[in-house]
Amino acid sequence: MTPEDRFPGPELPDSGPRHQPDLDVLPYGSYYEPEPEPGFEPEAGYGYTTTSGYGGARFLEAHWPTASQQAHPGEPVHPQAPAAEDPPTIELGPPLDKFGKPIEELNFPYPQPEPGEAPGPLYVVGDVHGYLDELLAALHQQGLIDAEGHWAAGRSRVWFLGDFTDRGPDGIGVIDLVMQLAAEAAAAGGYCRALMGNHELLFLGAAKYGDEPVQSTAGTASFLAAWRLNGGQQQDLERLQTHHISWLSRLPALALEDGHLLLHSDTTAYLEYGESITEVNDAVHHLLTEEGADEWWDCFRRFTKRFAFRGDAGPQAVHELLGAYGGQRVVHGHSPIPYLTGSTHLDDGTPPHVPGPYIYADELAIAMDGGVTMEGRLLVARLPLN
Rank of each mutant, 00 (worst) to 15 (best):
G53A: 10
G53C: 06
G55L: 06
G56L: 09
G56W: 05
G56S: 07
G56H: 10
A57C: 04
A57N: 03
A57T: 00
R58C: 11
R58Q: 12
F59S: 03
F59N: 04
F59G: 01
F59C: 03
L60A: 10
E61Q: 14
A62V: 12
H63W: 13
W64K: 05
P65H: 03
P65Y: 02
P65I: 06
A67M: 07
A67R: 13
A67N: 02
A67H: 06
S68G: 10
S68C: 06
S68Q: 13
Q69T: 05
Q69P: 02
A71E: 11
H72Y: 01
P73Q: 03
P73T: 01
G74W: 06
G74D: 10
G74L: 05
G74T: 12
E75R: 08
E75Q: 11
E75C: 08
E75K: 07
E75D: 13
E75M: 08
P76A: 04
P76S: 05
V77A: 11
V77E: 10
H78V: 14
P79H: 06
Q80E: 15
Q80K: 15
Q80M: 14
P82C: 07
A83I: 05
A83C: 07
A83M: 05
A84L: 13
E85P: 13
D86A: 15
P87Q: 00
P87D: 12
P88F: 03
T89Y: 10
T89E: 12
I90D: 09
I90Q: 08
I90T: 11
L92G: 13
L92Q: 11
L92T: 09
G93Q: 04
G93M: 02
G93C: 02
G93N: 00
P94N: 00
P94T: 00
P95H: 01
P95I: 05
P95D: 03
P95A: 05
L96W: 00
L96N: 01
L96H: 01
L96S: 01
D97G: 01
D97V: 04
D97A: 00
K98T: 13
K98M: 10
K98F: 10
F99D: 15
F99Q: 15
G100S: 02
G100T: 05
K101V: 10
K101N: 09
K101H: 10
K101Y: 09
P102G: 01
P102K: 00
E104C: 08
E104V: 12
E104F: 11
E105N: 11
E105A: 14
L106Y: 06
N107C: 11
N107K: 11
F108L: 15
P109H: 04
P109Q: 05
P109V: 07
